[in-house]
Design a protein around this nucleic acid. Structure first.
Lengths: 104, 104
DNA sequence: GGGTAATATTGACAACTGTCGATGTTAGAT
DNA sequence: ATCTAACATCGACAGTTGTCAATATTACCC
């Protein structure tokens, strides 16, 4: 996963409504009109959010007739979680001495 | 961790330079002037980014004399990773029948 | 105290983002 | 073919964000 893909994933996650959508999808696949009922945004706005979530790879889309069904892309979420965990593992306890100059 | 805190964490992570800073901090505590050398932004911009990272709880600050030392706040990163993992665990395989109407 | 180095703050500006109303597209129903 | 429901796209607008130059603050050194 490239650096750019990573930031676009975090961008996709950094909106209150989109987080709500993901949490709603945790209970299983949902169609857009159901999600619309859960939020306080208009239909074009929901469509916009779903596009961002789908394009980033956080949700999968399945179209059937008039309906669009969305579901969580677990692999992507797990990959992100793995990245964050790796980032939290500080390789060595490297505390700089308080009296040393750090900048030369 | 509240919903609002969560989105502010993701917001803090959704910038290329801030991700770079965190990856740089993975090798241990660094002072601002060192981080400045790693990026292609001016000093006020770095200061701005560090404030966002610190306020969100992703990094810890230690001040000593003229210098500010920054380090990764592992707990926060791990909490976020746990949240993402929990989100990826779909409770039941709930695929809606293709021929059913979803919206009533 | 005066000078200098590290960092923070302020103000300004361009770029991006979330939202909506209006309109377009597509597919089933009558 | 016409109507309607689900969803997408477009254009506009306000609010936010990343960036910089200029300035302020703080702490050390002489």
């Amino acid at each position: 996963m490239t650096h750019l893909e990573m930031t676009s994933l975090f961008k996709a996650l950094s909106d209150d409504n989109r987080l709500r959508i993901l949490e709603r999808l945790k209970s299983g696949e949902k169609c857009a009109c159901v999600l619309l009922g859960d939020l306080t945004v208009g239909q074009p706005t929901l469509s916009h959010h779903m596009k961002i979530l789908a394009d980033s790879g956080l949700v999968k889309v399945r179209k059937s007739g008039k309906w669009s069904y969305y579901s969580i892309a677990s692999e992507t979420l797990q990959a992100l979680a793995a990245y964050l965990n790796q980032l939290s593992e500080i390789s060595r306890e490297c505390v700089i001495d308080e009296n040393s100059d750090c900048c030369r």
